[in-house]
Simulated scan of single mutants.
Amino acid sequence: MARVRTVAVIGGGIAGPVTALALRKAGIEATVYESYPAPTDGVGGAIAVAPNGVAALDIVGVDLPRAWPIHRQVMSIGHKRVQLPALAGVGPLQMIHRRDLHQSLASSVEINYGKRLVDAVPGRGGVTAVFADGDEIRADVLIGADGVHSTVRRLIDPAAPGPRYTGMLAFEGRSPLEVPEEPGTMIFAFGKRGYYLYGPTPGGGTTFGINLPHPPLTITSARAVPPAKWTETLLETYGEDSPGGDLIRRLPAGELTVNGALHLMPPVPHWHRGRMVLVGDAVHAPSNSSGQGASLSIESAVELAQCLRDFTDVGEAFTHYEGLRRRRVEKVASRAARTNGVKAPGPVGKALLPILMPIFMRIAMNPERVLGPEQRYRIDWVTDLRSAAA
């Protein structure tokens, strides 16, 4: 059977370009198609890349420009603070603005913008991608890296579940307010009415992120709200918190970033069909509580390319890829879902949170047991998967 030679990657965010780079390293031609009409440099905020994600990026030769390491993480509940346990010997979490990571990826991969996929037609030994502008592109394989609202997921399985709204909108900013924390610290704060995180920014000021409990809004609708109105809404929820309220009040007008609704993906029954397959948030998007969303997408991109490199039969490659990834990503998603539930707790949860969270952190969050399997994961790119399976 002929080896895969050409791949059409749908989605130019993070997973798509990493997939293309990994395929190129595997000796397979890959082209990326993105529905946005132009690069989206202003979309998205800071991304956390865990040590396992950094290791996967190393395989495809991508570094993290302008990232800053997080050496210390602290849970803050009212006046109580609990330092989160660290995992030894894996390196720190790396924070990087999505724009900087995307620019680094896009500089190595050509992305065709303005290409919104509307259909995929299977053919003899390949698949034809049909775009809204009338263009048709044929490739041996089509990969859906098109996010939680994936078109490719629907084409693979019209009955596939869609993303679930977490009940929160994401906001971000860099306030000139200096917080009394050592560099490389990230504080996860449970305020009186909502959750937020913050930490000192290299070069001065404080970067903060907010998960605002709110009815669902599309990103377009959320960004149509005047910034001053959002600031007013945020202060209603976080104004009494310290330093949350002051971080918002000191933020210069117009510099609040609206990142939109936070979603997670439930388990997807079918990861692939025929010559189409899913990768990244299109098939597994855990809550941002996991700290693993970007890293898992990067891992899956690299391991999918490795499977297509080592298995000449496409169906066998896709089956092996799902076998490598499904249990791992669903386990991380399950852990994160439990954590996510305390970000916007009900009245009883709010009363118990200050008592339960320190106990939870000291007893349940054994760093090696919980974080070890996630952060110590390394992809063996050199090994031939087909030979190893045999």
Rank of each mutant, 00 (worst) to 15 (best):
A2I: 07
A2Q: 14
A2P: 14
R5A: 15
T6D: 10
T6C: 00
V7L: 03
I10K: 06
I10R: 06
G11D: 09
A15Y: 02
A15W: 02
T19Y: 08
A22L: 10
K25H: 12
I28F: 11
E34G: 02
Y36H: 15
P39K: 14
P39R: 13
P39M: 13
V43M: 05
A46V: 10
A48T: 13
L57K: 03
V60Y: 03
W68V: 04
W68C: 04
P69F: 07
Q73Y: 03
R81D: 12
Q83F: 12
A106I: 00
V109I: 04
N112A: 13
N112K: 14
K115A: 09
A120R: 03
G125F: 02
E136M: 15
R138Q: 10
A139T: 11
D140Y: 08
L142C: 01
L142S: 07
A145F: 00
R153A: 13
A159I: 04
F171H: 00
E172N: 09
G173W: 08
L177I: 10
P183G: 10
F190W: 13
G191F: 05
P200S: 09
G203T: 06
G203Y: 03
G203R: 00
G204P: 01
T206F: 11
T207P: 02
I210S: 07
P213G: 09
P216D: 07
P216A: 02
T218A: 02
I219K: 13
T220L: 13
S221L: 09
S221C: 02
A224H: 10
P226F: 02
A228P: 04
K229S: 14
T231E: 03
L235S: 05
T237A: 07
P243M: 02
I248W: 05
P252W: 12
P252T: 02
L256A: 05
T257A: 15
V258G: 05
H263S: 10
L264D: 14
H270N: 11
W271D: 01
H272P: 01
D281N: 13
H284Q: 09
P286N: 11
P286K: 04
S287N: 13
S289H: 14
S290V: 00
S290I: 09
G291F: 12
Q292V: 03
S295I: 01
A301I: 02
A301R: 01
L304D: 00
L308N: 06
F311C: 06
T312D: 15
H320T: 13
L324W: 04
R326P: 10
R326H: 04
E330F: 01
K331Q: 11
A336N: 02
T339S: 13
N340Y: 12
P345N: 03
P354R: 07
M365P: 09
N366V: 05
N366D: 15
V370L: 14
L371V: 06
L371C: 11
G372T: 04
Q375L: 15
I379Q: 00
W381K: 06
A390H: 12
